[in-house]
Amino acid sequence: MIPIFLLNIALAVAWAALTGNITLGGLLVGFVLGSLCLYVTRPLYPGCDSYFRRAGKWAKLIVLFLYELVVSSLQVVWDVLTPAHKSRPGIISVPLTVRRELDVLLVTNLITLTPGTLSLDVTDDGKTLYIHAMFADDPDEIRRQITEGMERWVIEATE
């Protein structure tokens, strides 16, 4: 049996080829349309419900990350443009609950991509992450935000 994801990719490529729009946008439109077609015909593909459940969790991770990206960007821009700087940089250790290397990699990259934070190091045992935060007034709050935010979203998307 063909994995549903590969079938979705094939539908996206077919859509792009049929429309003559072989660009990233054309492939994305084809992927979305292919996903809708596969969702409508999911009774024909046993076991595909986990694909759509996982795709929903990945979509949630992407949307929540983009929200965090916008909010933190605005916070950094505001601090740079206003005369009174509120940034209090610091290095914070964050205990990690993720254990797989892929999950640790994803969490650290999402933190680094968010303005105002930077992943510095992960201990050899993978249990502690060191980050540099631009606004480190309350280290416990930052730890909570990472644990209940990005780390939880990554666990949900990759489980």
Rank of each mutant, 00 (worst) to 15 (best):
V77T: 13
I62P: 11
G90Y: 03
V63H: 00
D49H: 09
L6Y: 13
Y67Q: 06
S35F: 15
W15F: 15
P83M: 11
N109L: 05
W15R: 03
L18K: 06
T23K: 12
L66D: 05
H85G: 11
T82R: 15
L38Q: 11
L66W: 07
L36D: 14
L11V: 08
N21F: 08
I142P: 11
D79M: 08
A12C: 10
T97N: 15
A133E: 03
A59K: 09
G126E: 07
D121M: 02
G26T: 10
R152E: 08
I4W: 01
L44E: 08
L105Y: 09
L106Q: 01
R53E: 05
F52L: 07
L33T: 00
A84H: 03
M1T: 13
I2D: 13
L28F: 14
A10D: 08
T82H: 14
D125L: 10
L96I: 00
P46R: 10
E68D: 15
I91H: 03
D49K: 03
P89A: 00
A84T: 10
T97P: 00
L74E: 02
I131H: 12
A17D: 14
V154G: 02
G126P: 07
T82I: 00
D138V: 10
V71I: 06
Y39W: 13
L69P: 06
Y45S: 10
S119D: 05
V71G: 11
H85E: 06
A136P: 15
A55V: 02
I155K: 03
V63Q: 02
Y67G: 02
Y67W: 13
Q145Y: 10
Y45R: 12
V77E: 08
L102P: 01
P46S: 04
T128V: 14
G20N: 08
L129R: 03
L24Q: 14
R152V: 06
F5Y: 10
G20I: 11
P115Q: 05
L113W: 04
C37E: 00
N21E: 14
I92T: 05
A10R: 11
A59W: 10
D49M: 09
R100D: 06
L38P: 13
D121I: 00
V77C: 15
L105F: 05
V107D: 02
N109T: 06
R54T: 14
P95D: 03
P43E: 06
F52S: 02
L27Y: 06
S72G: 05
N21V: 11
G20Q: 09
T147F: 14
G116Q: 04
